[in-house]
Amino acid sequence: MRRLFPFPLLTLGLLGMWLLLNQTVALGHILLGGAVATGAGLAMAALKPQKPKIGKPLAVLRLLGIVATDVIRSNFAVAGIAIQGKRRKQTSGFMTVPIDMQNRYGLAILSIIMTATPGTVWLNFDAGSGRLLIHVLDLKDEQAWIDIIKNRYERLLMEIFQ
Protein backbone atom coordinates (compact mmCIF):
# COMPACT_ATOMS: atom_id res chain seq x y z
CA MET A 1 0.00 0.00 0.00
CA ARG A 2 2.69 2.46 1.04
CA ARG A 3 4.75 1.52 -2.00
CA LEU A 4 1.90 2.07 -4.40
CA PHE A 5 0.75 5.31 -2.75
CA PRO A 6 3.83 7.03 -1.32
CA PHE A 7 1.97 10.37 -1.15
CA PRO A 8 -1.67 9.52 -0.44
CA LEU A 9 -2.77 13.15 -0.02
CA LEU A 10 -1.22 14.16 -3.34
CA THR A 11 -2.82 11.20 -5.12
CA LEU A 12 -6.23 11.92 -3.61
CA GLY A 13 -5.94 15.61 -4.45
CA LEU A 14 -5.07 14.91 -8.08
CA LEU A 15 -7.94 12.43 -8.39
CA GLY A 16 -10.28 15.07 -6.96
CA MET A 17 -9.01 17.62 -9.46
CA TRP A 18 -9.52 15.16 -12.33
CA LEU A 19 -13.12 14.49 -11.28
CA LEU A 20 -13.83 18.21 -10.83
CA LEU A 21 -12.48 19.07 -14.28
CA ASN A 22 -14.52 16.30 -15.91
CA GLN A 23 -17.54 17.07 -13.72
CA THR A 24 -18.39 13.44 -13.13
CA VAL A 25 -18.14 10.65 -10.59
CA ALA A 26 -18.51 7.88 -13.20
CA LEU A 27 -16.58 4.69 -12.44
CA GLY A 28 -14.54 4.96 -15.66
CA HIS A 29 -13.29 8.42 -14.76
CA ILE A 30 -12.49 7.37 -11.18
CA LEU A 31 -10.38 4.47 -12.53
CA LEU A 32 -8.65 6.55 -15.21
CA GLY A 33 -8.04 9.51 -12.91
CA GLY A 34 -6.91 7.15 -10.16
CA ALA A 35 -4.37 5.59 -12.50
CA VAL A 36 -3.01 9.00 -13.51
CA ALA A 37 -2.91 10.19 -9.89
CA THR A 38 -1.11 7.01 -8.75
CA GLY A 39 1.44 7.49 -11.52
CA ALA A 40 1.99 11.09 -10.44
CA GLY A 41 2.46 9.98 -6.82
CA LEU A 42 5.07 7.44 -7.91
CA ALA A 43 6.81 10.08 -10.06
CA MET A 44 6.88 12.38 -7.01
CA ALA A 45 8.48 9.58 -4.99
CA ALA A 46 11.22 9.31 -7.63
CA LEU A 47 12.17 12.92 -6.81
CA LYS A 48 12.73 11.81 -3.18
CA PRO A 49 11.36 14.88 -1.39
CA GLN A 50 11.44 15.02 2.39
CA LYS A 51 8.19 13.47 3.58
CA PRO A 52 5.85 15.80 5.43
CA LYS A 53 4.35 14.43 8.63
CA ILE A 54 0.95 16.01 9.10
CA GLY A 55 -0.58 15.37 12.48
CA LYS A 56 -3.54 16.72 14.38
CA PRO A 57 -6.37 17.27 11.89
CA LEU A 58 -8.10 19.41 14.52
CA ALA A 59 -5.16 21.83 14.50
CA VAL A 60 -5.37 21.98 10.69
CA LEU A 61 -9.05 22.93 10.91
CA ARG A 62 -8.33 25.56 13.57
CA LEU A 63 -5.56 27.04 11.42
CA LEU A 64 -7.91 27.18 8.42
CA GLY A 65 -10.51 28.99 10.51
CA ILE A 66 -7.96 31.48 11.85
CA VAL A 67 -6.58 32.16 8.37
CA ALA A 68 -10.07 32.65 6.90
CA THR A 69 -11.08 35.17 9.55
CA ASP A 70 -7.75 37.01 9.29
CA VAL A 71 -7.99 37.20 5.49
CA ILE A 72 -11.49 38.67 5.66
CA ARG A 73 -10.55 41.15 8.40
CA SER A 74 -7.40 42.36 6.68
CA ASN A 75 -9.29 42.62 3.38
CA PHE A 76 -11.43 45.35 4.95
CA ALA A 77 -8.41 46.97 6.65
CA VAL A 78 -6.40 47.13 3.43
CA ALA A 79 -9.45 48.29 1.46
CA GLY A 80 -9.70 51.25 3.83
CA ILE A 81 -6.03 52.11 3.35
CA ALA A 82 -6.30 51.76 -0.45
CA ILE A 83 -9.32 54.08 -0.61
CA GLN A 84 -7.58 56.76 1.46
CA GLY A 85 -4.60 56.50 -0.89
CA LYS A 86 -2.14 59.37 -0.79
CA ARG A 87 -4.06 61.46 1.74
CA ARG A 88 -3.16 58.99 4.45
CA LYS A 89 -0.01 59.29 6.54
CA GLN A 90 2.45 56.61 5.46
CA THR A 91 2.65 53.83 8.04
CA SER A 92 4.14 51.02 5.98
CA GLY A 93 7.58 49.61 6.65
CA PHE A 94 9.94 46.65 6.81
CA MET A 95 10.38 44.60 9.96
CA THR A 96 12.10 41.40 11.02
CA VAL A 97 10.47 38.58 12.94
CA PRO A 98 12.41 35.86 14.79
CA ILE A 99 11.12 32.44 13.65
CA ASP A 100 11.78 29.25 15.62
CA MET A 101 10.20 26.83 13.17
CA GLN A 102 12.66 24.64 11.26
CA ASN A 103 10.31 22.44 9.23
CA ARG A 104 10.42 23.38 5.54
CA TYR A 105 6.79 22.58 4.85
CA GLY A 106 5.71 24.61 7.86
CA LEU A 107 7.75 27.56 6.60
CA ALA A 108 6.28 27.21 3.11
CA ILE A 109 2.73 27.22 4.50
CA LEU A 110 3.56 30.21 6.71
CA SER A 111 4.89 32.13 3.72
CA ILE A 112 1.74 31.40 1.71
CA ILE A 113 -0.53 32.39 4.60
CA MET A 114 1.31 35.65 5.20
CA THR A 115 1.52 36.71 1.57
CA ALA A 116 -2.05 35.67 0.77
CA THR A 117 -3.28 37.81 3.66
CA PRO A 118 -3.54 41.40 2.42
CA GLY A 119 -1.26 43.71 4.37
CA THR A 120 1.80 41.53 4.85
CA VAL A 121 4.34 40.30 2.30
CA TRP A 122 7.03 37.73 3.07
CA LEU A 123 10.34 38.93 1.68
CA ASN A 124 13.26 36.91 2.90
CA PHE A 125 13.93 34.15 5.41
CA ASP A 126 17.41 33.40 6.62
CA ALA A 127 17.46 29.80 7.84
CA GLY A 128 20.81 30.28 9.62
CA SER A 129 19.71 33.04 11.98
CA GLY A 130 15.96 32.34 11.82
CA ARG A 131 15.30 35.96 10.89
CA LEU A 132 12.34 36.66 8.63
CA LEU A 133 12.07 39.95 6.76
CA ILE A 134 8.53 41.09 5.97
CA HIS A 135 6.91 44.26 4.68
CA VAL A 136 3.79 45.45 6.48
CA LEU A 137 1.34 47.97 5.08
CA ASP A 138 0.00 49.16 8.44
CA LEU A 139 3.08 49.11 10.68
CA LYS A 140 2.02 50.97 13.79
CA ASP A 141 3.01 48.40 16.39
CA GLU A 142 5.82 45.98 15.53
CA GLN A 143 5.28 43.87 18.64
CA ALA A 144 1.62 43.30 17.76
CA TRP A 145 2.59 41.87 14.36
CA ILE A 146 5.24 39.64 15.93
CA ASP A 147 2.62 38.36 18.40
CA ILE A 148 0.18 37.63 15.59
CA ILE A 149 2.71 35.71 13.53
CA LYS A 150 4.22 33.76 16.41
CA ASN A 151 1.13 33.01 18.48
CA ARG A 152 -1.57 32.72 15.85
CA TYR A 153 0.26 30.96 13.01
CA GLU A 154 3.67 29.64 14.01
CA ARG A 155 2.58 27.76 17.13
CA LEU A 156 -0.21 25.95 15.31
CA LEU A 157 2.03 25.17 12.34
CA MET A 158 4.66 23.72 14.67
CA GLU A 159 1.95 21.54 16.23
CA ILE A 160 0.86 20.34 12.78
CA PHE A 161 4.33 19.61 11.39
CA GLN A 162 6.26 18.36 14.40
Binding site: N75, A79, P118
Partner: peptide, 29 residues
Protein backbone atom coordinates in the same frame (compact mmCIF):
# COMPACT_ATOMS: atom_id res chain seq x y z
CA UNK B 1 -16.00 46.00 -5.76
CA UNK B 2 -13.18 44.44 -3.73
CA UNK B 3 -11.20 43.84 -6.91
CA UNK B 4 -11.73 47.45 -7.98
CA UNK B 5 -10.55 48.76 -4.59
CA UNK B 6 -7.44 46.56 -4.89
CA UNK B 7 -6.59 47.86 -8.37
CA UNK B 8 -7.42 51.39 -7.25
CA UNK B 9 -4.86 51.05 -4.45
CA UNK B 10 -2.34 49.87 -7.02
CA UNK B 11 -2.87 53.20 -8.76
CA UNK B 12 -3.02 55.41 -5.68
CA UNK B 13 -0.41 54.21 -3.18
CA UNK B 14 3.06 55.75 -3.05
CA UNK B 15 5.81 53.15 -3.18
CA UNK B 16 6.15 49.78 -4.85
CA UNK B 17 6.24 47.96 -1.50
CA UNK B 18 2.92 49.59 -0.53
CA UNK B 19 1.38 48.72 -3.86
CA UNK B 20 2.36 45.07 -3.68
CA UNK B 21 -0.22 44.55 -0.92
CA UNK B 22 -3.36 45.76 -2.66
CA UNK B 23 -3.77 43.25 -5.55
CA UNK B 24 -4.30 40.54 -2.89
CA UNK B 25 -7.74 42.08 -2.33
CA UNK B 26 -8.73 40.92 -5.80
CA UNK B 27 -7.16 37.50 -5.40
CA UNK B 28 -8.56 36.76 -1.95
CA UNK B 29 -12.03 38.09 -1.22
Amino acid sequence: AFTLVGSFGLWRLRSFYDRVHTPTLGTSL
